[in-house]
Structures are given as C-alpha cells and as structure tokens.
Nucleic acid binder design. Structure first.
Lengths: 134, 134
DNA sequence: CTTGACTCTGGACCTGGGTCCATACTGCAG
DNA sequence: CTGCAGTATGGACCCAGGTCCAGAGTCAAG
C-alpha cells in the first residue's frame, strides 16, 4: 500500500498543500495516520476522497455540499444522493437563467448603441441613468 | 431642489445606509455637500448616480467596472462605453457556458441514476469517486 | 427642554475558499 | 554528519461587497 506525505498527495490531486490542510480543518479529509513526528500520512482511500472533493467542486458543489455528499456516500444512500444532485441541478439552472436575463439586457443595449455620437443617444448610459427601461 | 440625508437617499435607492458610506469610501459616490455638523447631504444628481450604480450592478458589473463606467459617462465617451459593455457581455457569456457545461454533466449523471439500489450502481457516486468519467 | 430618531467616525467582522508567513522541527541523500 | 527539502503549527491576509458596532454628537417634534 502506497502511503503519501502531504506534498505528494497534493501533487497527485493537483491542489496546493495548504488546500489539503484547509480541507482537514474544514472536516473533509483527515490523514490516515501520523508519524511520531506529526507528519501526515495518506493512503489510497484519502487520495480517492480528495479526487472526489475536486470533482464535486468542478460540478459546482460547495465544500458544505461536499461534506454532505461524503457523509451520504458513506451511508451508501443512493436515493438521497440523487436528490441532492437534483437540487443542485435546479440551483445551477437558476443561476443560468439569471445570467441569461442579464445577457439579454446587455445585448439589447449594445445592439441599440451606435457607438459614437452624443452621450444622450447612448442607450447604455441612458439605461443606467434611468432614462429608459432595460 | 430636494436635498436628502443619507437615510432618505439610501431608502429611495433601496440600499442600506452602510452601503452608501461604503460606496463613498470606494470612490463611487460623494455627498453634494455636508452640514456644519458633518451630516451628508445629497441632491438629485447623487440619487441618479446611486441608481446608476445599482442598475449597473444588476447587469453584472463589478464596482470596479462601475467606477470606470462613471468616469466614461462623465467624459461622454460613447465608443468606450460600448466596448466596456461588450466585454462584459463576453464575460457573462463565458460564465453561462461554464454553468451549461456543469449542468449537462450533472444532468447526464442524474438521468443515469436509478435512485435506489447499491451504491456501486449509482453513477453520481461513481463519477465522483472516479470509477467513470463525467 | 427633552426625547427619540438620525448621523458621525473608525474599525471589526462576515462569507468561501483558499494562500502565505514565521519559526521550528524532521527526513533523506550524499 | 551535513545540508536542504519537506513538514509542523497557529495565525494573518486576500478577494468583493458589504454589515455591524460603540460611543459620541445632532436634528426636529412636542
């Protein structure tokens, strides 16, 4: 069984050493054991767990969410895992919708702006100063 | 001419008093004048400016961006205003694309998860623990 | 004049997710 | 054995955009 120091672990997972310690403070990842000296030692399980954390973050989960997912995956509670994923999906769809709204407003303003001439004729400035509705 | 105290100004713009003072510290909005006592007094121009700030924030501009827009609007530089708006649009489109990517990954996983049964058969957990690609 | 609401200042604190630092100790190669 | 890279700890600091607080002063209605 491979056993890794914090530096190797961090490198393999593509994160910083401080990040690993931060996750530990945050209750997400503990070393398998410690040497007499206090040096942290990690095994395969910890490396997998760290990969899990990274992947989940890449999917838009917060560390808080991930703490929950890790607990669930230990409970092997598939139904709840699916529910959590579904509510995260809803969350992400709402964020997209909000950005779409903003995108559309900006797009309209830009399309209507000639890009030269008097400030009074710039719909972007007018919208921002409240002369017209966005 | 109406002249407003900080409380009235904040109320009319729908922000907190502390926010107004924060914007002042941040160089976005100064009172038109001050009383002998030091009390801030705002006129119509400041109210409009505060509305501008809020609208711009709602369109996804940072306070930093807004400082720039305010400077431009004072210079009446329409071409540059349009360019700033365009680059903000690109920025927002990138954020949307990133979220779309996440949404799609999550959607695929959820669709493939039966919602019951063994943890080994849950694609969400498998994806997170690295048994399969997302 | 009193009272209560409002405002002043400077600074601390908050969220999330880290990152950096000083100082001291440890592990390993040569 | 020496030297240097790696690691330990606790705490400060970073970003943005506020929010809250204490203690003191002020304004306006009654």
């Amino acid at each position: 069984m491979t056993t890794l120091g914090i530096g190797q672990l961090a490198k393999r997972a593509g994160v910083g050493i401080d990040t690993v310690r931060y996750y530990e403070r945050d209750g997400l990842l503990s070393p398998a054991t410690r040497l007499e000296s206090g040096y942290r030692r990690y095994g395969d399980a910890e490396l997998k767990r760290l990969h899990f954390i990274r992947r989940a973050k890449a999917l838009g989960f917060s560390l808080e969410d991930i703490r929950g997912l890790l607990a669930l995956s230990e409970e092997r509670d598939v139904a709840t895992v699916k529910q959590v994923a579904e509510s995260k999906l809803v969350d992400i769809e709402q964020r997209i919708a909000e950005l779409e709204r903003i995108r559309s407003g900006l797009h309209t303003l830009i399309a209507a702006c000639p890009g030269h001439g008097r400030a009074e004729d710039c719909p972007i400035l007018n919208a921002l100063t409240g002369q017209e509705r966005v």
